[in-house]
Amino acid sequence: MQAAQIDGTFDDSHAQLRSLYMTLLEHQGRFDEFKSILAQYEASSDGEPEQARQVRERLNSRIRDWVDGFEGLSAQQVIQWRGIVVEERINVALSPWKESNLY
C-alpha cells in the first residue's frame, strides 16, 4: 500500500471510490440504477463468468457517466458492493434496533 501511495495509485483509486460513493448518496436515480445492475451480477467460485464480466463492464461504463475518469470496479469490489447494497448482508448486522447510527 505504501508503494501505491507513493506513486499516487492509491490516492486516485480511493478518490474515485469516494466520488462514486458521494454520487450514489446524492442521486436517487443513480443509486437505483447502480443497485439494479449490481443485482444482475452473479459471481462464481471458479472466477468471474463471462456473463458476470459483461454485467461488471456495463456497470463500470455507467459509473464513468457519473464519475469522470473512473477506472472501474474489480470483480472483488463488485462482489463487496453487491453484498452491501443488494443483499444488505453486512450493514444490517447491528442496525435494526430503534436508535439510529446515522448522521
Binding site: 436517487q28 443509486f31 452491501i84 446515522l102
Partner: peptide, 20 residues
C-alpha cells in the same frame, strides 16, 4: 438537498469507513 439521502446513507453505511 438530496431527498432520500438518509436512506441511501444507511444502505451504504458499511462502505463509509473504507471509502471516506
Amino acid at each position: 438537498r438530496h431527498p432520500g439521502y438518509v436512506i441511501r446513507f444507511r444502505a451504504l453505511s458499511a462502505l463509509e469507513h473504507e471509502v471516506l
